[in-house]
Amino acid sequence: MSNSQKKRNVNAGGSTSKSPGRSNSTGPKVSGKKPANAKSRDKAIADARKATSGGNSQMTIWIVAGVLVVALIVAGIIAVTSSNDEKEKARAAVDPGAGTVSEGAITWGEESAPVTVEYYVDLLCPACRVYETRAAETIEKYINDGTAKLVVHPVAILNQQSQPAGYSTRAAAALLCAGDKEGGYLYMKQLYENQPPEGGPGLSDQELISLAEDEGLGEDWKQCFEGGEHADTPTANTKAFEEKGYAGTPTVLVDGKELSLGGVEELKQEIEAAK
């Protein structure tokens, strides 16, 4: 062995070094203090732990916030669904079902009902909308309990009050196409709820179709409306209305007796007297 090799194997005290192996020491110590690089490493570890801890807290906040947002969305969907279900149940409860269409009129209710209530209406007429809205609960009760049947005669006396003229005819024809189908009565209510102002263009054909689709009126209704099956009926109804000498719409009759339009109470009294 050369002298240089012997010198490398001799420690400061003159003894030879031990063979390399696993050590419990983290490294050489100088005056009991860690070297600068160990301090830097420990500081980096501490900073990393702090950052990780902060990140986890931030992540937890975001997770909780996300869960709350999802919960609110789900709750909102449930509330809307529940509200829509209640509306559908309420509408179904007043729907007398498919009626019959004959001689330009729609009849809802049992044919054998002891009392006949007739409406002569123009679907552009604001007074018709007001009366129908106020009387709806009353007439629906009498229809559904079998006391009365409702016969609706759609007329077009306000045809010239839309620009272009003719909305009353188009709306009446659309309603006549719906009268003998499930949802037809609700379609009439939709036409009142969405009644356009006088002097305007009225609802377009596409808007009339959209309202029909909302009430579940299918292809048969659409073919009837677009094919013009009842295009001339409102004109014939208007002529008959004028020949009878009625002053205006709405005209309401109970078993042929014209009411003075004193309100819902008058309608109730006449039905009760006639049944």
Rank of each mutant, 00 (worst) to 15 (best):
T26A: 14
A92N: 08
L68Y: 01
V10W: 10
A148Y: 03
A36K: 11
V264T: 13
A236W: 01
P197R: 06
A44S: 15
A51H: 06
L267D: 03
G216H: 04
G200L: 03
E103M: 08
G97P: 04
A165L: 06
C224V: 05
G14E: 07
V94P: 00
V152N: 10
E132Q: 10
P201D: 15
C128D: 07
N144K: 14
K43M: 11
S25R: 14
G245C: 06
L72T: 05
F241G: 09
T235A: 15
G202A: 10
F225R: 02
A127D: 12
K244G: 15
L261A: 09
R129E: 15
K89Y: 02
E103I: 02
G54D: 15
I106M: 08
N9H: 14
A172L: 04
G109I: 01
E226N: 11
A51V: 02
N159P: 01
G199I: 02
N194D: 10
G55H: 08
V64H: 05
D232F: 04
P28N: 13
M59Y: 12
I77W: 07
G216E: 04
A172F: 03
V152S: 08
K275C: 00
L72G: 11
G76P: 02
P201K: 14
A212E: 00
G184N: 05
S260N: 13
A173E: 12
T147L: 00
G55P: 03
M188D: 06
L191Y: 01
G54A: 15
T169Y: 11
N11L: 10
G183H: 02
V70F: 13
A93H: 08
A136P: 00
T249G: 13
K89H: 07
T116Y: 02
W221F: 07
G256E: 06
N194M: 04
K6W: 08
L261W: 03
D255Q: 07
K239D: 14
S57W: 04
N56T: 10
Q195L: 12
R22C: 03
P196A: 04
L203W: 01
C125A: 10
A174H: 00
V264H: 02
V130H: 11
L267I: 05
S57I: 11
A65C: 09
G54M: 13
K244L: 14
I157N: 10
A44P: 01
A38H: 08
L191F: 04
